[in-house]
Nucleic acid binder design. Sequence first.
DNA 1: AACTAATTTAAACGCACGTTTAAAATAACG
DNA 2: CGTTATTTTAAACGTGCGTTTAAATTAGTT
Lengths: 209, 209
Amino acid sequence: MSTKNKILDAADVLFADKGFNGTSLREITSQANVNLAAVNYHFGSKKELIKAVMSRYMDELSPQLESSLLLICQADVKPSLHDVFSAFIAPLLNLNEFKVNGTSTFLQLLGRGYTDSQGFLRWFLTTQYPNVFTHFTKAVKIAYPELSTEEMFWRLHFTMGTIVFTMSSSEALIDIAENDFDNKLDIAGVIERVIPYVAAGVAAPIIKI
Amino acid sequence: MSTKNKILDAADVLFADKGFNGTSLREITSQANVNLAAVNYHFGSKKELIKAVMSRYMDELSPQLESSLLLICQADVKPSLHDVFSAFIAPLLNLNEFKVNGTSTFLQLLGRGYTDSQGFLRWFLTTQYPNVFTHFTKAVKIAYPELSTEEMFWRLHFTMGTIVFTMSSSEALIDIAENDFDNKLDIAGVIERVIPYVAAGVAAPIIKI
DNA sequence: AACTAATTTAAACGCACGTTTAAAATAACG
DNA sequence: CGTTATTTTAAACGTGCGTTTAAATTAGTT
């Protein structure tokens, strides 16, 4: 395997686990069994490495996500919100074939990116992969046309928060649930449980001010 | 004002804004106009300062929260989930009288505590302030008795994620919403919008496996 | 084989961090 | 007032960080 990929494979696991600020290049390079200077040689800087880690996942995910959402939009029967959110399942779980534990690693990275580094990753995602967002809001608009754009804005951000936060700490939550309820969930099980929740949240009756 | 309080007042704003790891003691002490060594003299270490910052808020909040939730549990009419979550509003907004921008600062701190520092703050809160959690789950159980303990566990963590993540980035979201929709929300406005969302999420139909 | 380009390596750089020290300044008190 | 305790101060300590350097090694090309 190339040095570049060895670095990426070590970096995304460590980034997901300990955050971008919380992971040093020395940890990454020693985990990857490459020289410390290799990161700056191949990627230029730590910031560019972070971008490369995210891009590797997003380049795999976003085409699948776009076509999955497009299919929902073009269906003959009006989709429910549950249908819209379910459109994320297959593309997300496919990341597990792209890389071992790819799904949970990516979702954890997403969570880190939103809270670490003061929103620079949010800018990166929305500017580099805008189609995912437009297709998604279009699909939600079809499923729940009464929802105003502003209310949709807020509820989609609430949803993002639910997903991202849950997945950031999914390993800990899965462990707790196993201990307390003797029910060992995997990442697909967590996704199955969160979708009714967010679908119901977005579908909540419209508030009056 | 005492040096100790000057430090706490500077620290909580900076911690909320840039995270625990992202804020240095030099930033805090220069913002507070005190000597660098004052933190270690008065608090012992940075970790203890973080605990003190959180304790100051929790000691103010948790009694109000407990009695507010207890009131819900002991009411004659069965409360709705919306009622349960609304029990948080007054205690949270009262933090604004405790300190300027206290509500949003505290909620941002909560979000930081969950994602920074690998869950040590979660341990701190659940062990130091367990009554808040038990009263809350009791209230939810009354409002939605059909929900199994395990499903409640998951949905409450989804809810925690929604709140914490939203409030971590509430300032940015409020700015975006103002630009895009000419509608300037304050923190109370965000809370008003998130409660129907989380109440509907927790109230979602029970999934079958 | 000889030369060039790409990569890897070990070492060091400068910087910012949390913490500690010991002296100076202030407060408390008999 | 004099003495003791408390607090503040400036300076330094050791550590770990991202990055850079220049030499050593490897790969590619003619």
